[in-house]
Design a protein around this nucleic acid. Sequence first.
DNA 1: ATCGTTTCTTAACTTAAGTGAACGATTTTT
DNA 2: AAAAATCGTTCACTTAAGTTAAGAAACGAT
Lengths: 193, 193
Amino acid sequence: MQDILFDFISKYVSLTEEEQNALLSLDLFHTVKKGTVLLRKGQQSRDSYFVLKGCIRTYYIIDGEEKTTAFYTELEAFTPPCVISGTPSEYYISCIEDSILTISNPGMEAEVNTKFPKFEIMCRMLSEELLAKQRVDFDEFKTSSPEQRYLNLLQKRPDLLQRVPQHQLASYLGIKPQSLSRLRARILGKGKA
Amino acid sequence: MQDILFDFISKYVSLTEEEQNALLSLDLFHTVKKGTVLLRKGQQSRDSYFVLKGCIRTYYIIDGEEKTTAFYTELEAFTPPCVISGTPSEYYISCIEDSILTISNPGMEAEVNTKFPKFEIMCRMLSEELLAKQRVDFDEFKTSSPEQRYLNLLQKRPDLLQRVPQHQLASYLGIKPQSLSRLRARILGKGKA
DNA sequence: ATCGTTTCTTAACTTAAGTGAACGATTTTT
DNA sequence: AAAAATCGTTCACTTAAGTTAAGAAACGAT
């Protein structure tokens, strides 16, 4: 499990054994059961996540309805906005599958970053990269129709269609579950005709 | 003009005079005329921007149509995804008003960051903050209707409605100009009734 | 194995966005 | 100053998403 983390890190910086051990001493690794809610609206969390295995999802509850806005799977990292802003969380985080995560917080990061400036560099690189990726995702979302977004998802993250319930995918695509059903039927029809 | 930049920076780290001078020696400041295209699709830019005054916009041209995805105004910074990925740009950047910008590139940043680790920290903080903000924007976009998005924009960035042409706002809201016109008429009607 | 819940699909109807076209109004170019 | 292009609005029509409701299938818990 640790190797997965170190392999990931090696894409950004190379760690000495000392640095690796510093990380390992932090007790980062956690296994989480499917269905576990890691964060609820209104809570003040300080935790950042990195998915080693499994799938977690962020969602809002608006007018009693769940609105799923993101899925994080293998090798994806994220820090909830509430951690950055220091305000109570607007959304929920839950575990869609039995998962293995690293969970860290600003205190731990500060400690490692001051001891090893290399980590500071890695954090900057990683968040710049995530910012750019998310920008592209947002742009694609804005400039395409629900149907195009679905087809796009089929291309880019086909695994999600398998591991995630339709109604959660629907709000991820910005539409209602019924519309996703209909849209899929429409596409299937086109394929045959 | 420089004060604006240093005031902004001071929200993240405090600079010594030496550090300030290191920045000033970089020739960061540029004035750009309205209508100037700073980046075109297919180009391989290395430039990051920080808006001191004015407004710049990013847009795609898809099937001959401009699709505006972002506006950057006073005190907003951004690095085009193509700079991070090292691939040719997918989009255009143009100047909506006469503007004053700082323009930097990874080389300049690397130089300053190694000389003054403080900058590295600031860059990390800034991109983490932007990542979180953008996440929230994306989530709001996904979870609301065009009409809600328009009303939301009215609340959060009322200045944009004044300084930006309607048809550019429309694609920024993910709809056609005609739909924005109609939607506004609809809202006005509701207000009176 | 069964009961109950959740999930997915289908259908009929409503509402809003997309489309194509026309019209002034404004701005830019010549 | 005239001509051309751009911009915003409106209209009629088309298309797709939202809504409400119902039923079948899959899943979980007991």
